[in-house]
Write a protein that binds this DNA or RNA. Structure first.
Lengths: 346, 346
DNA sequence: TTGTATGCGTTATCAT
DNA sequence: ATGATAACGCATACAA
């Protein structure tokens, strides 16, 4: 297959390169008859312009990078990233962009990734990151490469991001447990470096405080988002002298571990332990009792992020207006919390 | 940030473009003193060559595409692809390549994907596909774009692929159940379009035949690799007049559904149903009883595929020798099969 | 060892 | 509406 160039097509169609180029970019100023002839030759030879040559002159790749968190468990193990990236690529496809999924952190060192970015391999990036002091965010800011972020840092110095109100979301989840009569409510935290971890913990504390329930440090577990950590921490909770009657988990993945720990002790959900999760993973219904959880609009987060990024890429002005979008969460009540407790043994 | 070019660096370092280029590509023929000076300027300005320009002249991108199956459940839901891609990107990183994860099937129509391939955005691709009549494989073959495949089709017309012996692997798994005294052994199949589905089914049939056990069609379920399908089919099995005492699942994901169905019936694993899975997912130990399963060397599959592809890319001759690599599987015996049955009630 | 010149395949700016 | 021609930023063959 001696790859044809635009020059070859031009010759074969009996026109100049310019005309072929015009056809390729569907510019109006070309006679229909000529256009058809050129199109025919293009299709007949399966010609496609070389991306590199095009990029060199336009200085655009029409592709964006999608950078995911580095936690291996989260990466493929946690479907929320699949959902987010689904939203991103959906928008990209519509707008004629391609999105390259980039597990920049897992399989490539930062320096190489930075090199790709500086090498202009992407017009922009969607960064999924709730990390505080994220090095990618810092790099992107410094170099001025367009990006939008899913998640954000407290300083809020990201130009554009989409996120949910994690404090409020968690508060509502815990309040739900309180409204059912629970007073010993355990909390499973995510990785400390993630902003949403402290935010969700904050929501937990606020809910307790509003209800006049003192915070018991024994009931707070430092997880890492993984099922394994949910398992280990729950075992610890259940060994407590006064074990919790309810548990709020910072994500659904950890709940899988919680369930196993509870069952291993011969106890039951929700009778012995009521559970509220976070994320609302579609898959979970297959694995454990239908989970009451805080629904996060993952696909929508991806959609909005991609839209904001592409809008920035397409604008002609150099200055970009900051945009911080907060999407709503929903408390989805199912079966993992049971009903209101009659007698409350505090 | 007015992006600098090689010309700028040359001027700043007081040398010609060629010299800077030589430094960039670490060619020997440049005086150490000069090299250092140029390096300094490069670093000082954070210069990185533009990928497009470099690609245009070299006609190589040094990046490969990694195309995954289109089944959404499999995509992120099934960690084996994470493991495979981990192997691929590991090798790529070592060899100075970058691998772009490409969910070509989920988020992009085939035509757009083909355009990218023809546009030379990748030097080659690793195709994870066990599909029969895979359109991507056909396209790659037709265009002559270098690729290696993880999985293969029966016709074996892929130039280079890595796979396991699915027939043999399944046969061993089922034989294990037979050796424990089971004679009513159900089989959970994967998607019909996947070659490995029919291969594993073939192994199942061979094992039964060797043991003189007649095949009972009632005990064969057409799954789709998903947990949900494992759940539904198992419910059906358990409602049978003579339910199976053992089950062989074509992958571990479906086993999650099997377990739930069994528990819902108030039955137990392995007492009421012995289970052998396939894959040996690291995560599963958290969710169900430690699973006896056929281990597939996923990471290794990715490694070998990437190695074979890069070898092909680096060679100078046009002709590539075919390579078909079959990696060994292992029966990992854990707890989901229990011990030998005393009395065998056929 | 270093510099000069040419070309990679495309788009874009001019003419016509 | 179409065709020459000049970039785009880099690597490389050839000269020096």
């Amino acid at each position: 297959m001696p790859q044809l160039t635009i020059e070859d097509i031009a010759r074969l169609a009996g026109v100049s390169r310019s005309t072929v180029s015009r056809v390729l970019n569907s510019q109006p100023s070309v006679r229909p008859a000529v256009r058809d002839r050129v199109q025919e030759v293009i299709i007949a030879h399966g010609y496609t312009p070389q991306a590199a040559a095009r990029q060199l002159v336009t200085q655009r790749t029409r592709s964006i990078g999608l950078i995911l968190p580095d936690n291996v468990y989260n990466l493929f193990g946690n479907p929320i990233f699949a959902l987010m990236s689904q939203g991103v690529s959906q928008v990209c496809a519509q707008q004629g962009y391609t999105s390259l999924l980039f597990m920049g952190r897992q399989d490539m060192n930062e320096q190489d990734m930075f090199k790709m970015l500086r090498g202009r391999e992407f017009d922009g990036v969607v960064l999924i990151s709730s990390n505080t002091n994220d090095t990618y965010a810092a790099f992107l800011k410094e170099t001025g490469i367009p990006y939008t972020r899913i998640g954000h840092e407290p300083e809020q110095d990201d130009l554009r991001y989409v996120d949910v109100d994690n404090v409020e979301a968690a508060r509502i989840g815990v309040k739900h447990l309180i409204s059912l009569g629970h007073r010993r409510i355990a909390m499973l935290k995510g990785l400390a470096r993630d902003t949403c971890t402290s935010d969700r913990y904050q929501g937990y504390k606020e809910a307790l405080e509003e209800a006049g329930i003192p915070l018991d440090p024994e009931l707070v577990g430092d997880g890492d988002w993984s099922t394994a950590s949910g398992y280990e921490l729950t075992k610890r909770f259940l060994r407590l002298e006064r074990p919790p009657t309810a548990l709020f988990s910072s994500n659904d993945m950890m709940v899988a571990g919680v369930i196993r720990a509870v069952h291993e002790q011969g106890r039951r959900v929700p009778e012995d332990l009521a559970i509220v999760g976070f994320d609302d993973l579609p898959q979970t219904t297959m694995i454990f009792p239908d989970l009451t959880t805080i629904r996060q609009p993952c696909v929508e987060l991806g959609i909005r992020a991609a839209e904001m990024l592409i809008e920035q890429l397409e604008q002609d002005t150099k200055e970009t207006t900051p945009m911080h979008v907060i999407l709503p969460t929903t408390l989805v009540i199912r079966e993992s919390c049971g009903f209101k407790r009659r007698s409350v043994v505090s």
